[in-house]
Structure formats: structure tokens, C-alpha cells
Write a protein that binds this DNA or RNA. Structure first.
Lengths: 189, 189
DNA sequence: TCGTCAACCTAGCATTTGCTTGGTCAAGAG
DNA sequence: CTCTTGACCAAGCAAATGCTAGGTTGACGA
């Protein structure tokens, strides 16, 4: 399918230069076609980012639910959430960046109201795990679940900003270091 | 001075909507003047963001140097760096956001080469402290200074994304929680 | 009273932007 | 051989964008 190829190209450009700064001519150039030809595949520039974001949200949500479904304790579940978030950096790098950079602005439009809904679901999943960990004593009871959720989310979803796929810095190394700091950061001693 | 008022307006808009998405007419509207009148104060839209960013970098660098100059141990110095970074969120909220969101793209232009230079200075300051902490045994020797620097930097500089000045969530609360997680996250036990 | 000057306006130009319309072309089905 | 269809091109339009050139206004000092 040509559509998904074009979407991947668009996603990379949106992630690198920003959605507004990327023109439909930029995307077409990268694909080796003319800008008008894009409209054979998509209604509008907006529908491209729409597709990118909704796909990313579906994937993320189901990967989170998979971790929850394992039914492990709070600490291991927390580790699982951190791990899967960081792992998605490899395949969904540009989507994460777009979600982070353009999400807030787009969420104001009715078309992208699902962004706000997803945001709330993410928050509930993370804070639930954190609260359970505090109850079980595995996490310090001084932590504020909502605030720590934001900290962790921002931390794991900002790594794609400087992570370069195929670079010498391997994802495993990043995951190992980030997991250690974050888990130690919330655990009681 | 009218210039600084206009700069503050521009900074807020750049931070909220993005540099490219903000038009000179947006800025002028917010200031209650016409777009052409902006060019009585500034050479170009680009020179506005230039001024905003270089001011922010000067402030940040000198605040970091102030912390270093206190000559305390690695752990307390690290705490000081985290603290001053989070504190700057109140007065330099928009500048931090602009630096984070537009920095990478702008740094490619010769005019903004100072961004790359500043980035290197920031990295050196943070990693030096982390290395010293590892040597002294206060920080775990398993941590990778460069990676943990990125983690901490991204974490403290992403908070302005959702922090709302004047909101019910006080900066002190954020600083307390963030400091606890980050310091515990790198410390040895 | 006159001259100066910062701040702003009026009007518009050149370019870029997202998108449209009508057409071409090659591959595959019947 | 014809017909359909998916992928693309050619050409351009209306709106938006950064910026410019020349003029107006009101405060202030000499």
C-alpha cells in the first residue's frame, strides 16, 4: 500500500520539522511525487496527522493493557509500563514526537478530541499502578501519583527527541538506565 | 521599554502554538497593534526568537554557575541544579518551551549556532557533577552520566509543558516531588 | 513655537501555502 | 483488444505570510 509509505514519510517530517513547518510539497518531494498527487491518497494534510496519531494511540493503549493483563504486582507492572513505553521508541519514534509536540495544540479542535480522551486513559493507567504500589508499601508513600505520573511519562516520551535509530547508542542501554533511575526513584528503601 | 513587552507576548505565543505556527499578525494582535508596527522594534520575526533564546541561555548558564560556585558536594550540587532548573520554570516558562521545541531545528542555522555551544556547556556541567557523585560513592556507579543527564534535563525542562502559572498546583510541590524522585533515582543505598 | 523622535498606521507586494481540476499512463481483468 | 482502476502529473487559484515604504500622531525638550 502506497498510503502507509507516504504516512511514514510524513510522520518523519512532522516529527523532525514540526507539523506546521512541514509543507505538503516537502512530503511529496521526499516521496518523489508532486504535491497534488498526495490528494489522491489523503483528504488533507490534517487527515495525515490524524491517521498517524490515532494509530499510535491505539497501539500504545493496547500495549499498556497487555502489561496490566499480566496481573503482576505494582512494581513489576510499573517496570513493564516503563519498558514498553521505551521500547515503542524504536518503531513509533516519530509518532511519539508528534503526539508530544503537536498534541496539545491539536486537542483543541473537535476532530482531535480523542487525544484528550486518550490522555485521560493514560493517566488513569499509570496513577492506578502508582497508587497500588504505595498501598503495598513497594513505593514511597510520599509520592504524589499524578505528579510522578507526569514525570515518568514526560521522561520516557522525551527520549525519542534525541534517540537516533541505528545509532551507536542502543535502545537496550537506554531502557536499562531509565528503568533503574525511575524505579529506584519511586521505590521505598 | 515596549520591546520587552512585545518579546514577552511573542514568547508566550511561540511557546503555546510553536514558532512557525505563530504569525507576526498574531503577535501584533495580542499587543494591540498592527503587524507592520512590529518592525519598528525588531528586524524580523527571527530576531525575536533569537533574543528570547539567547537571554534564556545566559540566565540558565549563570544560574548553573552560581550553584557550582557554592562549592558543595556532588549530591547537594546535583540537588541545586535540579532545583534551579525547576525554579526557572516560573519566570522563564515560555523560553524553556521554545528552547526545547524549536531548539533542534534552529540550531541548524548558522545564526543559532550558539544553541549547540550552550547545549555542550549544559551537558558538561551536569555530567561533571554526576561523575563526581559516582566517584564519591554518593551516586550508584552503574549510572551512565551522559544518559542520566539527558533523563534529568528532559524531565525538569518538560514540566513547563503542563505547568500553569497561577494554577492550584504550586511550583514548590512540583520541585519537592521531582527532586525526591530524581535524587533517589541516582543515589546509592 | 518648533523640531525631534519613538510608536504606530495605511496599504500593499512577493512568496508560500493547502488544495483543486482535468488530464495521462501503465497494469491487470474480461 | 477494450475497459477499468490506481497512481500520478500539469497548471493554477485563493488565502495567508513575512516584510516594506511612506505617512501620521502625540509627547517632550530647547
Amino acid at each position: 500500500m502506497r498510503q502507509s509509505e507516504l504516512l511514514a514519510i510524513a510522520a518523519d517530517l512532522f516529527a523532525d520539522r514540526g507539523y506546521v513547518a512541514t509543507t505538503v510539497r516537502d512530503i511529496a518531494d521526499e516521496a518523489g511525487i508532486l504535491s497534488g498527487s498526495l490528494y489522491h491518497h489523503f483528504d488533507s494534510k490534517e487527515s495525515m496527522i490524524d491517521e498517524i496519531l490515532s494509530t499510535f494511540i491505539d497501539q500504545t493503549l493496547s500495549s499498556y493493557e497487555g502489561v496490566i493483563a499480566e496481573g503482576k504486582g505494582p512494581k513489576e507492572t510499573f517496570e513493564g509500563l516503563v519498558c514498553t513505553s521505551l521500547e515503542s521508541m524504536v518503531e513509533s519514534r516519530s509518532a511519539i514526537l508528534i503526539y508530544q509536540n503537536e498534541g496539545r495544540f491539536l486537542a483543541a479542535q473537535p476532530r482531535f478530541s480523542y487525544l484528550t480522551a486518550a490522555h485521560r486513559k493514560f493517566e488513569k493507567i499509570w496513577t492506578d499502578v502508582l497508587k497500588k504500589g504505595v498501598k503495598s508499601g513497594e513505593f514511597r508513600d510520599s509520592i504524589d501519583p499524578k505528579l510522578v505520573y507526569r514525570l515518568v511519562r514526560d521522561t520516557v516520551w522525551t527520549a525519542p527527541r534525541w534517540y537516533r535509530p541505528g545509532g551507536s547508542l542502543k535502545p537496550e542501554k537506554i531502557i536499562e538506565q531509565y528503568m533503574a533511575v525511575l524505579v529506584e526513584g519511586v521505590s521505598s528503601h
